[in-house]
Nucleic acid binder design. Structure first.
Lengths: 143, 143
DNA sequence: CTCACAGTTTAGAATCATTCTAAACTATTG
DNA sequence: CAATAGTTTAGAATGATTCTAAACTGTGAG
């Protein structure tokens, strides 16, 4: 032990700052979850996959808290919810403008950069409605 | 009584033919549901909304059968499943190429003709994967 | 027209993801 | 350090959907 703990501490401090900025009290659980979610590259998680991961890391966080936290992070703009599967909800750490490939059989999401794709010809919505967002899901399967 | 029954019979006969062509035995329940689904213009239903409708029409069909039937019709290509809401599944009687506006608050779907919208710049999927379909959901809200 | 059987329907139980509840805990502030 | 508002949690509850196994019904053969 040496590097891991030190990095852990630095990471935790940054994470706590980030949570405070988002208006969230940096509790042990939120810091743990945020560290897992935001340390690496972009990630796509479900409540269960994240709960499994945090549990395997030897940290005790209830599934209810994982659900709460995912929703709070989403409201705070730290995550984005992705709806592609009737069976479960995915959360994406990439909150920028982008779209997805979705491999249904395996429940795998792959980002498509926002600049890559362009959607043309969206009609004006019916009167009284305004566009919030345009989601594109490219459903793929193993060849 | 006069017109209604006669039309009903004609409709039923057409519907039974349609079901047979799709490889589905035309049972009372399937004919009832198909009549409701396909008689008018394009429709978007959930299992519950369709069950309510058929029940209000005075026809006895179990909710389980509505679920079964919706899935069978979908497999047979008579319906298309639309995934826009984590909470419930929608089925669309329009199986052609088109996209949707979705008014989340009210659970309302509105078709956008396929010719209207064009999606450009979809990257090649990762090796070993092929594109099945590109879904576009324009999420709207009351202004 | 009738029988037999494969395919269907169904009530109710079961499942699964998710949310709720209310009691125990903890970060924060004074 | 104490008070308190915000959090966490186990477990119950919910809601959509699926399953089960028993009863029912198109259909094709005779």
């Amino acid at each position: 032990m040496g590097k891991a703990p030190r990095n852990g501490k630095i990471l935790a401090a940054q994470t706590m700052e980030r949570l405070r900025h988002a208006g969230l009290r940096p509790t042990r659980q939120r810091v743990e979850l945020a560290s897992l979610l935001f340390q690496d590259c972009d990630r796509h998680v479900t409540a269960e996959s994240l709960h499994d991961q945090v549990t395997e890391a030897g940290v005790k966080v209830s599934l209810a808290t994982v659900y709460n936290t995912l929703h709070q992070f989403t409201e705070a703009g730290l995550l984005r919810q992705v709806i592609v599967d009737a069976a479960r909800s995915y959360f994406d750490t990439n909150t920028g403008d982008h779209q997805h490939f979705f491999l249904e059989k395996e429940g795998v999401l792959i980002d498509i950069p926002g600049e890559a794709i362009s959607v043309a010809g969206v009609p004006n919505p019916p009167p009284g409605l305004t566009v919030e967002r345009v989601d594109v899901v490219v459903r793929v399967k193993r060849a």
